[in-house]
Write a protein that binds this DNA or RNA. Structure first.
Lengths: 336, 336
DNA sequence: TCAAAAGTGTTATCCTTACACCCATGT
DNA sequence: ACATGGGTGTAAGGATAACACTTTTGA
């Protein structure tokens, strides 16, 4: 390090180096085929526009020994829920995600977490919090009944317009064209839909100015265009929909190599129930017979011996998660 | 949210909610079959014990618009290097990772980043910074010449002792036994070695008290044991070896589904050179013929038409990365 | 001529995917 | 009887892994 750089480092290390750190939880459960996300009502914070938000609160090192402990505390205080499985997602720090142009809010860096809850009903959560289907915020992510109409009717035309407005590249570097990014993210022109690219799709829509959140960021007047009137899906407070997108993508990916689905299941379940939960999360349909074979071959579940008092049709064997699978296979997930 | 919780939230949001945020870069390059990591010399910080550290500095929102911009600035100042590919890894916040028991350092939350550099030589870095093989810090991770002797000779016996000292479970919950965790992380008793579990192995060694870093954390006297004298691999400042472990695991995993290797390659290279770089990173050997077939079939590279002035043996065709592969395949990586 | 690395061909095996079909229960 | 979901068998196709073998250069 040069002497100049050294002095620079010492100076900034002392001054103005502290920021507010926010902890945010995307808490997922699945209730009757609907992947739910736990929300809290607007608490009248400065800059909040009456939108719902994820449970969140600042990290206070004097009270909370670790980041995760802090997060669990906030969630319990705000929703009454005791979290089980928790995993860190990403730390977001872009200015403009949190603050409106020229307002005086302190800069906030927010750490997003994914949490999974096995509860199946609406009880046990506090006043002011509620479960909502995550597809309410990301309607283009649910392909269980075929391609969602919002894609053909709204998103694709608007994105096509946006691609047509692409400024010609100034530098010699050839960046990936908008058209190609759209193709890959949204599965156009023969590219298959990849259910894990939730964040990439969200970011693309954000960049194209098609989300309500895009407008809170200070945008240049020159960039105002027709699509600017669109507001796809229900927005959330701050950058919380972005955190949700990250959570969805991570969970969809993780299903395939870790037995996380069982965090969303009751202790006993039928194979169809398991399939419906996975379909709810991934937003796709699975091949029934192969799914069952795969699950039974995976060693992740075992028969309880009981059968379910069925809902139409032949009674189904009940299964439970078999934790010993973790000790046997190196990457125990359900590659479906 | 209850009224009590509301008041609590407002109170803590105002007071003591700011922390120091550190930005840390694990910068990787591969030079002559050695995966290198870029280090800077101890700057005499309070709490530093003369150990090398990753390039790092505080995040200062007033100067740096985003976290990544801040990181790039620190790296350039401290090492003279302009970063290309950069990716966020994880945010570490445990108390005790940074501060010795009862010292007065402010609580630091550190964000770790992975960066890749394609430079092949020692030039272009500033005084006070240097490249070191990452296996100097994690000698048990290099299996290119078979199982490393440090595993059989030191790690396995010490871990076996530690497993034997396991306290019997108090609660009714059955946690995963130390013995099983060791088996899975270190590939014992028929479990295959998984080169991606770098962080899991590091954490296990840390927990077993076999790393120099374990001792900086305030440990209960009762937990002192024979293995406490071990200090496997060369430590780094603060939690930087933990960040390095995270970076190694992430890079080893990412190779398989993203074309990140090419960030570590010169623009033109032979297939053997590509293979050696991948082997250096994963710490394993690959089957030559199948590797070549796989790479050529992947569409990720194209012939330049030139051949290399070879180093022993028949001249090899030169290849270059083909960026269009990104537009064609959904998950373009080298599953080797 | 030999070592060293480049490069080609072939085969056995496993895993995925799709299709066809039978079974048990409630109405 | 038939609708509904549970449950089994099997065969085609593709990807993977292992092996054997030829080619082209420098020393």
């Amino acid at each position: 390090m040069t002497n100049h750089a050294q002095r620079q480092a010492d100076k900034t290390a002392d001054a103005a180096a502290s920021v507010k750190l926010g902890l945010n939880a995307a808490i997922v459960s699945v209730q009757k085929c609907h992947p739910q996300i736990l929300l809290v009502k607007d608490r009248g914070t400065v800059g909040a526009g009456g939108l719902d938000s994820l449970p969140y609160g600042p990290f206070t090192p004097l009270e909370h020994r670790t980041l995760e402990i802090g997060l669990r505390n906030w969630v319990t205080q705000q929703t009454g829920l005791d979290l089980g499985y928790v995993e860190q997602l990403y730390t977001f720090g872009d200015r403009g995600r949190h603050a409106k142009k020229s307002d005086r809010l302190p800069h906030i860096v927010s750490i997003g977490y994914l949490a999974l809850s096995g509860i199946q009903d609406e009880t046990t959560i506090a006043q002011g919090s509620q479960w909502r289907s995550w597809y309410y915020f990301m309607p283009w992510e649910d392909w269980r009944n075929g391609k969602p109409s919002i894609l053909k009717d709204e998103i694709e035309p608007l994105l096509k317009q946006w691609a047509g407005r692409e400024p010609s590249s100034v530098s010699s570097a050839r960046p990936i064209m908008r058209k190609d990014r759209i193709r890959i993210c949204f599965g156009l022109d023969g590219v298959p839909w990849d259910e894990e690219k939730v964040l990439e799709r969200y970011e693309l829509l954000y960049e194209a100015g098609l989300l309500a959140e895009s407008r809170l960021d200070g945008r240049k007047a020159a960039e105002i265009w027709q699509g600017e009137m669109a507001a796809l899906g229900q927005p959330l407070q701050f950058d919380h929909r972005r955190i949700l997108a990250t959570a969805m993508g991570r969970l969809r990916g993780k299903l395939k190599y870790r037995p996380v689905v069982f965090e969303l299941m009751p202790t006993m379940f039928t194979l169809l129930e398991l399939q419906l939960v996975i379909e709810a999360v991934t937003g796709t349909r699975l091949h029934k017979q192969n799914f069952r074979r795969l699950v039974e071959a995976s060693g992740l579940v075992e028969k309880t011996g009981d059968t379910s008092t069925n809902t139409g049709g032949r009674p189904a064997k009940l299964f439970r998660f078999r934790p010993d699978a973790l000790l046997e296979r190196p990457e125990p997930g359900l590659r479906v």
